[in-house]
């Protein structure tokens, strides 16, 4: 059991929810604490698997897998039919009850693919190789009334900003840090007014020509 105080920050580190200073302190700690390093390595692997295959893992047919196992053993008992009927009714109620559409319990609507979590959204620009440092990030908004959190990262650079529009200016000090030839990635997350995650874009990659 790892009782180290840094242990509770493992996910904050991996999910980029730390200030640059805290991140530095945490990484320095990893060089001294084998248990926290092991935790980070393991959580990182699970995070990678969930990010890549979450669409399948958390899909509704994955949730009903035990029911398929019952039918493989032969004729299902009467209680299995009753349980299935109850599950269907519950699913219908969850789907149509207004209180469950946003923020009420575990969301049961699966994302449409492995790569895009939540709803889908597209990054428009910048992408690919650019002649100069971009001044803004632009995407196709998912729907009206959402707040967008945009994150831009690369070696030695991590920035995020919020907006209600489909475009955000890159601050001049961040723009100045973009180095030609280095790959940068950006991603947009859309949040509903109540704070629930509504859509996530794929990562868009760009590089400034040397």
């Amino acid at each position: 059991m790892n009782n180290c105080l840094f242990r509770r920050r493992v996910d904050d580190y991996l999910l980029d929810r730390m200030s640059a200073d805290d991140k530095g302190r945490f990484e320095e700690h990893l060089f001294q604490c084998g248990r926290c390093f092991r935790d980070v390595s393991e959580h990182e692997a699970v995070l990678a698997a969930v990010r890549k295959h979450g669409g399948r893992i958390f899909a509704p047919d994955a949730r009903t897998a035990p029911a398929r196992r019952i039918s493989r053993r032969g004729f299902p008992p009467a209680w299995a039919y009753a349980a299935s009927a109850a599950a269907v009714l519950l699913a219908i109620w969850i789907g149509f009850h207004p209180g469950n559409r946003d923020g009420g319990g575990v969301p049961l609507t699966p994302p449409s693919s492995d790569a895009i979590r939540g709803g889908s959204m597209e990054g428009i620009a910048p992408a690919g190789v650019l002649p100069a440092a971009p001044s803004a990030l632009e995407w196709k908004p998912a729907e009206e009334g959402l707040d967008y959190t945009v994150s831009l990262s690369g070696p030695g650079l991590a920035w995020s900003g919020r907006t209600a529009a489909g475009r955000i200016e890159i601050p001049p000090d961040i723009r100045a840090k973009l180095v030609p030839g280095i790959e940068y990635r950006w991603k947009v997350r859309a949040f509903a007014p109540q704070g629930g995650l509504a859509a996530v874009s794929r990562e868009t990659v760009f590089r400034i020509a040397p």
């Binding site: 996910d11 999910l15 699970v46 995070l47 969930v50 990010r51 979450g54 893992i57 958390f58 575990v106 969301p107 994302p111 979590r117 939540g118 997350r189 995650l197 996530v200």
Partner: peptide, 8 residues
């Protein structure tokens, strides 16, 4: 894991 890791 779904809410915290997958949906972030």
């Amino acid at each position: 894991l779904e809410l915290y890791y997958f949906r972030e």
